[in-house]
C-alpha cells in the first residue's frame, strides 16, 4: 500500500518537473479567460457564456491531460527501461499499476483545481458567486476525468501507444455520443444493428452521463440523487478498468 503511494508520488513529481502538461493548462486558462470577452452580450448571457465555455474547457483539457498523463505514466517507464529498476525492487506489479493511477490522478486533480479556481475567480469577478449546481457540474467532470485516466491506463497495459491514443479518443467521442446513437438506432428495425449498438452502449462508458452542464447553464437544477448515482457509475467503470489493467500487467513481459 505504501509502495503504491511512493510510486504515485514519484510519477507526480516527475511530471511536475517535466512541465509538458503545463502547456495544456495554459491553453485551458486562456480559453476560460477568453470566455469573458463577449462584452456585447447582456450580463446574464455573458454569465451563461462564461459557464458554458469554462465547463467545456475544464472537461476537454482535463480529458487531454488524463489521456496523455496516463499514456506516458506507463509507456515512458517501459521505453526508458526505468521499469526494470522498479519491478526488481520488493514491490508487486499491482503496486506499480495502482501507483501509476494515483500519480496520474494527482496530476489531473492539481490541474483540475487550478482551472476551477481560475473559473470560480472569474465568477466572483463578475459578481456572481458559484452556487451548488456549479459544484455538482464540476464534481461530475472530475469523476469523468478519473474514469478517462483509468481507461487509458488499462489500454496502455496491453496495446501500443498509438493504438492507445486512438482508442482513448475514440471512446471519449463515442462515450459522449452514445445517448444520441441509441435514440437514433431505436428507430431501426434491423436486429443486428440494434444488437451491436446495444452491446456498444453497455461496453463503452457513457461519458455523457457526467455532462450536466447544459442543464446547469440554463438554470435547471440537477438532484444530488442523480449526481450520486453517476459517481457510483463512474467508480464501477473505473474499478473494471483498473481490474483489466492489473490483469494484463501481471503477465506482461517488458
Amino acid at each position: 500500500m505504501k509502495k503504491m503511494w511512493l510510486i504515485g508520488l514519484n510519477t507526480f513529481r516527475e511530471s511536475m518537473r517535466k512541465k509538458t502538461l503545463y502547456i495544456i493548462l495554459i491553453f485551458a486558462l486562456i480559453v476560460i479567460g477568453a470566455s469573458k470577452l463577449f462584452s456585447f452580450l447582456t450580463a446574464e448571457e455573458e454569465l451563461k457564456m462564461i459557464k458554458d465555455v469554462s465547463f467545456s474547457a475544464i472537461e476537454f483539457f482535463g480529458a487531454l491531460m488524463a489521456i496523455f498523463g496516463s499514456l506516458y505514466a506507463i509507456s515512458t517507464e517501459i521505453e526508458r527501461r526505468t521499469i526494470y529498476t522498479l519491478l526488481t525492487k520488493p514491490i508487486r506489479r499491482s503496486d506499480f499499476v495502482l501507483g501509476k493511477f494515483f500519480g496520474v490522478s494527482m496530476i489531473v486533480l492539481i490541474n483540475f483545481i487550478l482551472m476551477t479556481v481560475f473559473f470560480i475567480g472569474l465568477l466572483f469577478f463578475k459578481k456572481s458567486p458559484p452556487d451548488l449546481q456549479v459544484f455538482k457540474t464540476l464534481l461530475l467532470i472530475f469523476f469523468e476525468l478519473m474514469l478517462i485516466s483509468g481507461i487509458t491506463l488499462a489500454l496502455g497495459t496491453f496495446t501500443s501507444d498509438a493504438f492507445n491514443i486512438i482508442c482513448s479518443f475514440f471512446l471519449y467521442i463515442v462515450g459522449h455520443l452514445t445517448s444520441y446513437g441509441k435514440e437514433l438506432v431505436e428507430r431501426t428495425e434491423n436486429i443486428i444493428v440494434r444488437g451491436l449498438t446495444d452491446m456498444l452502449y453497455t461496453l463503452v462508458p457513457n461519458y455523457e452521463n457526467f455532462n450536466i452542464r447544459d442543464k446547469i447553464v440554463v438554470g435547471l437544477n440537477v438532484s444530488w440523487g442523480y449526481v450520486g448515482w453517476t459517481i457510483l457509475y463512474g467508480i464501477l467503470y473505473l474499478c473494471i478498468a483498473l481490474y483489466i489493467a492489473l490483469y494484463f500487467f501481471e503477465k506482461r513481459e517488458i
Binding site: 505504501k2 509502495k3 511512493l6 510510486i7 514519484n10 513529481r13 516527475e14 518537473r17 517535466k18 526508458r80 527501461r81 526505468t82 526494470y84 529498476t85 522498479l86 526488481t88 525492487k89 520488493p90 514491490i91
Partner: peptide, 28 residues
Amino acid sequence: VGFLPENPYYYDYLTGPELLRFYASLFS
C-alpha cells in the same frame, strides 16, 4: 537483491540523491 540493468536509464528529472532516496524508500 540489487540489480543493475544494461545501459541503465533513470528518471531524467531527478538528481542522484533523489533517485537513491526513491529506491531506498521502496526497500522501506
